[in-house]
């Protein structure tokens, strides 16, 4: 979790200096869902994300240097610098897509789940998306089809209460995303998305039946993004008190202090975790910085068609 936090704090700074380019959405405050869910996944599983994807890709084990280089548009980036922040793909670590089109990876995950059932029985497909994506046709259409075909797909909704600048209450009268699962008889849970242990437990419980031929499942993680919608968004649409309230529930610090309290980790070890993550990120930034941009010929390579 510290790796994701340190990585994205660094991304945020580098957007400021112009080294990280484009429309960048960080997941600071939401790390627990990425880590808790990915921790129960196996190498054969396949993952999709949305526009807020850095944490998911890192939680799957992607090389931070390659992710950072991608965000800088460098040739050594995960996608050769062509995809950027919203389009991270790392096939080696089972990440088949992220998207700038809200909801766009939900049908891809369903299709992948159907394929996995044939080609890699027991493997699951997972898709992370926001609460805003729940209002898309894709979500509703796929909920129906996934239930109809009992597809081994885990739908993970990171419910941070906002879609861009608009609170969830202005988008839907349905308070809990998991309510939608009831209609279709889909196994679903709502968890404290800032508690990595709770996320992990819920994900493990939901994924186990998928591996045995059941499915689908829906996990709703209640969380909060501690920064604006995108880097540069001053987030004037929300109260400072709301942010303060959620800062007190910071998933990264909470995980560390809980582990110390339970005696699983000494305070020194916890501090060492953070320091190691920050060192790794600093090294990733330095390596990405010195990497070359792609050559002009890359512009028309891999177009296909």
């Amino acid at each position: 979790m510290w790796l994701i936090r340190a990585f994205e704090e660094s991304v945020s700074e580098l957007v400021g200096t112009g080294e990280v380019v484009g429309l960048v959405h960080v997941s600071i405050g939401q790390e627990a869902s990425a880590v808790g869910v990915c921790d129960v996944l196996e190498a054969r599983d396949r993952v999709y994300s949305g526009h807020r994807a850095h944490g998911h890709v890192l939680a799957r084990g992607a090389d931070p240097t390659a992710v950072m280089a991608e965000l800088m548009g460098k040739a050594t980036g995960l996608c050769g610098g062509k995809g950027g922040s919203m389009h991270l793909v790392d096939v080696t670590h089972g990440v088949l897509g992220a998207t700038g089109v809200v909801g766009g990876t939900i049908p891809l995950a369903l299709g992948t789940a159907l394929a996995l059932r044939e080609t890699a029985p027991g493997a699951v497909a997972v898709v992370f998306f926001g609460d805003g994506a729940v209002q898309t046709g894709y979500f509703h259409e796929c909920l129906n089809m996934a239930a109809l075909w009992k597809a081994p797909v885990l739908l993970v909704c990171e419910n941070n209460g906002y879609a861009e600048f608009t609170p969830r209450s202005a988008h839907t009268p349905v308070e809990r995303v998991t309510r939608h699962a009831e209609t279709y008889g889909i196994d679903a849970r709502t968890v404290d998305g800032n508690d990595v242990v709770a996320v992990r437990e819920a994900a493990a419980a939901l994924v186990a039946p998928l591996r045995g031929g059941g499915g689908p499942a829906l996990l709703e993680c209640l969380t909060y993004r501690m920064r604006g919608h995108y880097e540069g968004d001053p987030a004037r649409y929300r109260e400072a008190s709301e942010l303060a309230e959620w800062k007190a529930k910071d998933p990264v610090r909470r995980c560390a202090s809980a582990a110390v309290e339970r005696g699983e980790l000494s305070a020194d070890d916890a501090a060492a975790c953070e320091a190691a993550a920050r060192r790794a990120v600093a090294a990733a930034v330095a390596a990405a910085r010195s990497a070359p941009f792609p050559p002009p010929s890359a512009l028309t390579e891999d177009v296909g068609g």
Binding site: G73, G77, K82, G84, F293
Partner: peptide
């Protein structure tokens, strides 16, 4: 534009 999607990488997008 060339027959290609729009790349993110600054020198490539500038050339696009």
């Amino acid at each position: 534009a060339p027959y290609a999607p729009v790349p993110v990488s600054p020198p490539l997008e500038d050339a696009y």
